[in-house]
């Protein structure tokens, strides 16, 4: 299952670094899209099938937090796995993101760390199996 990924960061350099790290992570990658701010990111989401968004917080035009708010408000994208990739260190701010169902990876990050976070966000264990527990009929008590 190849992942179509959207990378949103106002630095073209950082977007390249994230993409390079993604390619080293061993994750199955499909189409990779880039955006320089939240507005561009939302346009790409509207026009393309995206499985995962990696988003910076501090961006001009529209911040990552505003963009994530819009993503969660839209029924089409409300369940999109989103990971914030940032230098942010405030635990309060990170907890707020987590409450909004958003993952977090602190820069600098390794391919392994990125992989681990992506897999946990999309609900897949590192062995390729779903992290959702399968309930056997015999487990149920009717």
């Amino acid at each position: 299952m190849a992942l179509n990924v959207l990378v949103v960061d106002d630095s073209a350099t950082m977007r390249k670094i994230i993409i390079k790290t993604l390619s080293m992570s061993g994750l199955p990658l499909g189409d990779l899209h880039e955006a320089g701010n939240g507005v561009e990111g939302l346009e790409i989401l509207r026009d393309n099938w995206i499985d995962l968004a990696l988003v910076d917080i501090n961006m001009p035009v529209m911040t990552g937090e505003e963009m994530i708010g819009r993503i969660r408000q839209d029924p089409e994208t409300a369940d999109l796995p989103v990971i914030v990739v940032s230098t942010e260190s405030s635990t309060a701010r990170i907890e707020m993101l987590s409450d909004n169902g958003v993952g977090f990876v602190h820069k600098p990050f390794t391919p392994e760390r990125l992989r681990e976070t992506v897999l946990s966000m999309i609900g897949v264990a590192d062995d390729g199996n779903s992290t959702e527990r399968t309930i056997q009929i015999s487990d149920c008590d009717f």
């Binding site: 940032s86 230098t87 942010e88 260190s89 602190h106 820069k107 600098p108």
Partner: peptide, 8 residues
């Protein structure tokens, strides 16, 4: 930027 965000 990243070093600063990491060290603070």
């Amino acid at each position: 930027n990243v070093i600063c965000g990491s060290v603070l």
